[in-house]
């Protein structure tokens, strides 16, 4: 196995570089070989007016025309607005809920292992099943949500959940949060378990308040995995597609139509490969911007305490 390479050692600085690159090589090779071509292809398309035909792409260079168009495209801006709303609201709730639940699961209580295993359940339901399940739960006539709320006297009549602009997006977010926050909880829980307990005991002896203990011991201990989870969830949420595809298909009146859905329609339904690629590049750039802001903010937090 890999042990053949026994001779490596924590050697002098010159070979440190080489070792570092050697270790990175498999990952970089896989990424470059598999995503290299599609990525270049997309970049090329973004600067053309290509349309997809039965004989391949029918294209001419168009320079920055696609980007000039998309900046002016009101529908795209609206879709971006919904995307940001979905991303920020769902990720924020998932993070807060995830940390709270992780703290809870880190307590001693009867049946802890079982409850921890249970946390995998929402996450193990494939997104499509999750989306269909919630669609059925929200069904205005035969869904269980209306029945439940009515029986508890919380509503007076059956109402529509996915057919009302505004509400529809929030209900999709609820379904998404339910599935994804356990993931945050488990990642944070994993980090919590690596914080040495004597740190807490020492702090307790020093008379530090629970809030202080959280701020000075817990938070620094979970910050690394927490920020990974935050960033990865943000990227995922920004690309949201499947759950919307199943639950609302962008309706009612486009109020759940997100950027990925927009790209999908542009390139698959309307076959405009060129502008579809330009929209995809724009989405990627915005996502990268968002992540950069995060990373800068997280760096600051890391150095603050």
């Amino acid at each position: 196995m890999l042990f053949a390479a026994k001779s490596y050692n924590f050697a002098a600085t010159g070979s440190r570089e080489r070792i570092a690159w050697l270790f990175l090589l498999p990952m970089l090779a896989i990424m470059a070989v598999v995503t290299g071509f599609p990525l270049l292809n997309t970049l090329w398309l973004a600067f053309t007016d290509a349309s997809l035909t039965g004989r391949g792409y029918d294209w001419n260079w168009s320079g920055l025309e696609n980007f000039a168009y998309l900046i002016d495209d009101k529908n795209f801006r609206v879709a971006l607005g919904y995307t940001f709303y979905f991303t920020i609201v769902s990720v924020a709730i998932e993070m807060v809920l995830g940390v709270l639940v992780a703290l809870l699961l880190n307590q001693d209580f009867f049946g802890r292992t079982l409850v921890r295993t249970l946390m995998i359940l929402p996450w193990a339901l494939p997104t499509i099943v999750n989306a269909m399940m919630w669609r059925l739960i929200y069904n205005p006539e035969f869904g269980s949500l209306n029945a439940l709320l009515l029986q508890f006297g919380l509503i007076d009549f059956y109402r529509s959940w996915l057919g009302v602009p505004g509400t529809a997006m929030n209900m999709v977010i609820l379904a998404d949060v339910w599935k994804n926050y356990p993931l945050i909880a488990l990642i944070v829980l994993g980090a919590l378990q690596t914080i040495p307990k004597d740190l807490y005991e020492a702090a307790a002896i020093d008379g530090a308040s629970p809030w202080k203990r959280f701020w000075h011991i817990t938070l620094p201990g979970i910050l690394g995995p927490f920020s990974v989870a935050l960033i990865l969830r943000t990227i995922e949420a920004f690309k949201v597609f499947d759950i919307i595809y199943v639950m609302t298909r962008g309706g009612p009146a486009d109020t759940t139509k997100t950027a990925s859905f927009f790209v999908y329609q542009e390139s698959f339904s309307y076959l405009r490969a060129g502008s579809g690629a330009a929209y995809a590049v724009a989405v990627t750039l915005l996502s990268a911007m968002l992540i950069t802001i995060y990373i800068i903010a997280l760096r600051k937090t890391e150095h603050a305490p």
Binding site: P140, F142, S160, T248
Partner: peptide, 19 residues
């Protein structure tokens, strides 16, 4: 009013349930 969120299968269910 729920027609605004219904597809064909939803229509079938509502009709078949006698609503």
């Amino acid at each position: 009013p729920n027609s605004r969120e219904y597809l064909e299968e939803d229509v079938r269910k509502v009709f078949s349930s006698g609503e």
